[in-house]
């Protein structure tokens, strides 16, 4: 087991390195850098001025070298300008060059400087991530129990009316992307045109003070899309378990239907959905970006959109590192959990 985890962690680190390198390469393509120079320096800069601005700040080095600087394994480049000030990646605004460290990268805990928010990237990612973490937690609390409940209810008597109707509900939710269900929910429950006004159409206030009124719609919107898929997996797994021999034996011995479901079937039926739930987290990340944009909840997904559309290179890099790590860690947990829950699978 230890060796298995070690190998998986190794592959995970390799994947993370490859992915961040790809993101690094694409955000550091020359047109992006040119735009950065023009927004940070001066919009009317000539091509030579852009090139020298970028060169002074170390942007024109080769991509592997810049990447290594960003990771923090080689010291970053510094340039002394004509007026005597020293500039470089490691010298944030307001810090003396002599005080700044020579290594500054992810490994040293330095994530860079956001050009949009004018703050260190680490700080932004931290606060935004905690907001989104709370959103995700609420989503999980709503989505997982209801999905499992729907799946188990549908799967315990395959082909019954209850099964048919619950299955149709779960197909419908998987067919409704967040930007459709969100729009419909806002239209029905929050707009002045319909007039119900049960909930708020914007979750901006929920960042400081989440209440049921301003926070339920975003949570419901994200949950619904993921719910159908998990429910269908649970249903399939439950239906399969219910046809197993040991369930028939239990029934012939006179165990009541409720006890069969609760004591005999449930545990085996929940192995497959566990993996699905963990693998669903990357998809939730997607939903989070859409829902945070739609409801104007300024969390992690909203930050991603802001960073990407405003060409904030270091913030975008920070955001992608975090999201890639989240995806990879959930994959790892799902693999380990699957092996742990299912004794029939051996790791060797």
């Amino acid at each position: 087991m230890g060796l298995f985890i070690l190998r998986r962690v190794g592959v995970m680190l390799l994947t993370a390195l490859c992915l961040t390198y790809v993101v690094f390469f694409m955000t550091n393509l020359y047109p992006n850098l040119e735009k950065l120079a023009k927004t940070q320096g001066n919009f009317r800069m000539s091509d030579e001025a852009v090139a020298s601005w970028l060169d002074d700040r170390g942007y024109l080095q080769s991509t592997p070298k810049k990447y290594a600087e960003w990771i923090g394994v080689i010291p970053s480049k510094r340039t002394v300008l004509e007026d005597g000030t020293e500039i470089g990646r490691c010298i944030p605004p307001g810090v003396e060059a002599a005080d700044a460290p020579s290594f500054c990268g992810i490994l040293q805990g330095y994530w860079g400087w956001s050009t949009v928010f004018k703050k260190p990237v680490g700080e932004i990612v931290g606060t935004r991530l905690s907001l989104t973490g709370f959103l995700m937690l609420c989503v999980m609390l709503l989505m997982v129990p209801s999905a499992l409940l729907i799946g188990v209810l549908a799967g315990m008597r395959e082909g019954s009316t209850l099964d048919r109707s619950l299955s149709t509900v779960s197909i419908t939710t998987t067919a409704t992307p967040e930007y459709v269900s969100g729009v419909i929910f806002i239209a029905v429950f929050a707009s002045s045109a319909v007039g119900l006004k049960w909930f708020k159409g914007s979750a901006t206030k929920a960042m400081e003070d989440p209440t049921f009124e301003n926070f339920f719609l975003p949570v419901l919107t994200i949950s619904l899309y993921g719910m159908g898929y998990i429910a269908r997996m649970t249903r399939a797994s439950m239906a399969e378990v219910m046809t197993a021999q040991y369930i028939r034996t239990a029934r012939l011995k006179g165990v009541s239907f409720g006890n069969i479901v609760m004591k005999h079937a449930l545990r085996n039926a929940l192995i497959a959905p566990f993996t699905v739930i963990m693998l669903q987290i990357p998809w939730l990340l997607n939903g989070v970006v859409i829902v945070e944009t739609l409801f104007n909840y300024k969390g992690f997904g909203w930050t991603l959109v802001q960073a990407a559309s405003n060409n904030d290179i270091e913030l975008l890099l920070g955001v992608s590192v975090v999201s890639v790590v989240v995806v990879l860690v959930t994959q790892l947990i799902s693999d380990i959990g699957y092996v742990y829950l299912n004794p029939r699978i051996s790791v060797t």
């Binding site: 955000t27 393509l29 991603l304 995806v327």
Partner: peptide, 27 residues
């Protein structure tokens, strides 16, 4: 499989933002 997993580990929206912006299209 490693390559496929690499692409799958990418958040889709981030990938779209990286691929579809006018600057990247210009390259």
């Amino acid at each position: 499989s490693f390559l496929a997993n690499l692409i799958l580990a990418f958040p889709v929206i981030l990938l779209f933002y990286l691929l579809v912006t006018p600057e990247i299209v210009a390259t």
